[in-house]
Amino acid sequence: MTLTITAQTISITSIEQLNELSGENVKLCMQCATCTGMCPMTAEMDLSPRTVMHLVQFGMLDRLGDSNTCWKCASCHACTVKCPRGIDIAKVMEALRQHVLRTNRNYIEPSALPAERIAELPQIALVAAFRKLTS
C-alpha cells in the first residue's frame, strides 16, 4: 500500500488524539511487523496490525474506520510484549476502539445475542466483550 503524504492525508490532530488516548507515541513504530507476526487474530483482520500502525502514524482515522482490525483484536498483548520499539500496541488498538465507542456507537449489540449463546458463555466472555465492543 502506498501512502501519499499531503496536507489532506495527514492529520496531526488525529495522531495527537490517538497518542493521548493510548498514552503511547505511535511515531516510534518502525514498521518491522513483529506485531503482525505475534498476533493470533490476523486471519480475521482485513488490515494487519503493522498496516494499522502505519495508518495511525498518519492519523488516517477515516481509512481506519473502514477496517475491522481493532475490533478483532483480543487484547492479548502478544504484540506489546515483543514490540522492539516498546509501543504498547494493544493500547493503540483500544484507542481506535474508544475513538468510535465514545460516540455512543456499539460494535456488537448485546440484545441481538441469541439466548442459548448467552446461557452457554462464561460470564467473563460477556463482560470482556461488552467492555471492548460496546459503548
Binding site: P40, M41, A74, C76, L113, A129, L133
Partner: peptide, 20 residues
C-alpha cells in the same frame, strides 16, 4: 502455550476464536 485462545472474540464472529 502462550497463544491467545481468542478470548472474548468468541462473541464477535465465531470463526476467529475457533481457528485460534
Amino acid at each position: 502455550a502462550d497463544t491467545c485462545c481468542g478470548s472474548y472474540q468468541v462473541l464477535n464472529g465465531e470463526a476467529g476464536a475457533r481457528s485460534t
